[in-house]
């Protein structure tokens, strides 16, 4: 479904991504992990059009989308959340999510958009906050709102950037279940960047490990967590399955 081919992204002298290739199959949940500064968010920014790579291609359903502007990539059916949530602070939660439905893939009318937005707000259990200004939300709610907003664009492929970081364990497990259900019940394809190993390992179909801007390992959660290279890269950080 998505194919990233030999992507190189530099910032000045720093090579953030060094010939990274990655594929995602339809209806798969791919966990993208790696230590801080390994290039995970940069890769997201390349896929979603925020960065233009110096080399390499990004293909989506066989179509070259490299360097398309972000709003056009949304229209192709790829949506994302941000590592640090970016709410439209002075719009209500409902308007935040509606904006995505109105401008996303389908360009829904106002009433349709409201329906779509309410559905997703219910899905992420934020419906009772619909009329609150987004800046009043706490960090967990902001993340959930961003998830609902991304979903309202009507994506087939969803990129989640550290969705569960900062959540307490029980909240984390709930959100993780929600994400898994998106794949199992709604047929979405998801790439999720996570620091919390437990979350990634428990729900991913496959895990891709980035280290210093290049692929370190790839495979099932079990394979990856036993990989000595991965263990070394995380330098003793315990990885639990």
């Amino acid at each position: 479904m998505l194919e990233v081919r030999d992507v190189v992204k530099r910032f000045g002298g720093l090579v953030a991504l060094n010939r990274v290739s990655l594929t995602v199959k339809q209806n798969e949940l791919l966990g993208l992990i790696g230590p801080n500064g390994s290039g995970k968010t940069t890769l997201f920014n390349v896929i979603t059009g925020y960065y233009r790579p110096e080399e390499g291609r990004v293909l989506y359903r066989g179509e070259d989308i490299t360097g398309l502007r972000p709003h056009l990539i949304v229209k192709k059916g790829i949506a994302r959340t941000f590592q640090i949530p970016k709410p439209f602070g002075r719009l209500t939660v409902l308007e935040n999510v509606m904006s995505a439905a109105m401008y996303g893939r389908k360009a829904a009318s106002r009433s349709e958009a409201k329906e779509i937005a309410m559905d997703w707000l219910e899905y992420v259990r934020l419906k009772d906050k619909a009329d609150v200004e987004a800046k009043a939300l706490n960090i967990v709610e902001r993340k959930l709102m961003e998830l609902a907003r991304a979903l309202s664009t009507g994506p087939d492929l969803l990129l989640l950037d550290e969705l569960v970081a900062g959540l307490n364990p029980s909240e984390m497990m709930e959100v993780v279940k929600l994400v898994r259900k998106l794949v199992d019940e709604r047929g979405l394809t998801i790439i999720m960047v996570e620091h919390v190993m437990k979350a990634v390992m428990s729900i991913s179909d496959r895990v891709f490990v980035l280290h210093r801007g290049a692929k370190l390992a790839e495979g099932s959660p079990q394979e990856v967590s036993r990989d000595p290279k991965v263990i070394e890269a995380y330098l003793g950080e315990p990885i639990q399955v």
Partner: peptide, 26 residues
């Protein structure tokens, strides 16, 4: 302010990158 265009414009004011991320042509 309730129109599609109005909401898009406010979204850009609030966060330009997030606005692009929901499909708004900034």
């Amino acid at each position: 302010e309730a129109s599609r265009f109005g909401i898009g414009l406010v979204a850009i004011r609030e966060d330009e990158e997030a606005a692009e991320g929901v499909g708004i042509n900034v």
